Amino acid sequence: MKITIGTATFTATLETTPAAQAFADRLPLTVSMTELNGNEKFFDFQTALPARATNPGTIRAGDLMLYGPRTLVLFYRSFPTTYAYTRLGRVDDPAGLAAAVGDGQVTVTFTAP
């Protein structure tokens, strides 16, 4: 999958799960993602995806997750967590991701390879 943020493009690998397949079925997708906690951007879908949340213990920069059944989260910083997420995939090389998403709201486009 490709993720485009402004002039930056990243590749990502999706998991082989029902949630990741449901996400892939929505591609191409352009969304406005909102800043949260200085480490993530999120977007709320109108309809749910098949969530199967677990606690990853540590979030890594580049993780693409689902919080609950409707909230898409793109993490751009690594940190420990006590929250549970459904893993959708991961940015293959997250170098430059934090700079690309910047502060505040950002438009992100997800496309199939």
Results as ranks from 00 to 15, higher is better:
112 A>R: 08
50 P>V: 06
43 F>Q: 05
66 L>C: 05
90 R>C: 13
112 A>Q: 08
84 A>G: 09
54 T>R: 12
59 I>T: 04
73 V>R: 00
24 A>V: 09
29 L>Y: 04
32 S>H: 10
101 V>L: 09
20 A>S: 00
19 A>S: 01
94 P>T: 10
24 A>K: 12
3 I>H: 02
58 T>Q: 06
107 T>L: 09
75 F>L: 01
24 A>I: 07
113 P>G: 12
10 F>V: 00
107 T>I: 08
49 L>P: 13
44 D>H: 08
9 T>C: 05
95 A>C: 10
104 G>M: 09
55 N>M: 05
84 A>H: 09
87 R>Y: 15
97 L>S: 09
57 G>M: 02
8 A>S: 10
110 F>K: 03
101 V>E: 05
37 N>F: 12
67 Y>K: 03
34 T>I: 15
99 A>Y: 12
41 K>V: 14
5 I>M: 03
107 T>M: 07
14 L>R: 00
75 F>V: 00
37 N>V: 08
69 P>G: 04
59 I>R: 00
56 P>N: 01
75 F>H: 01
86 T>H: 02
7 T>W: 04
95 A>D: 13
96 G>Q: 09
47 T>V: 12
35 E>Y: 14
9 T>F: 07
99 A>H: 11
59 I>M: 07
15 E>Q: 07
32 S>Q: 11
49 L>C: 11
51 A>F: 11
82 T>A: 14
34 T>P: 13
95 A>Q: 11
34 T>A: 14
106 V>S: 02
6 G>T: 00
82 T>L: 13
99 A>Q: 15
91 V>W: 12
107 T>N: 11
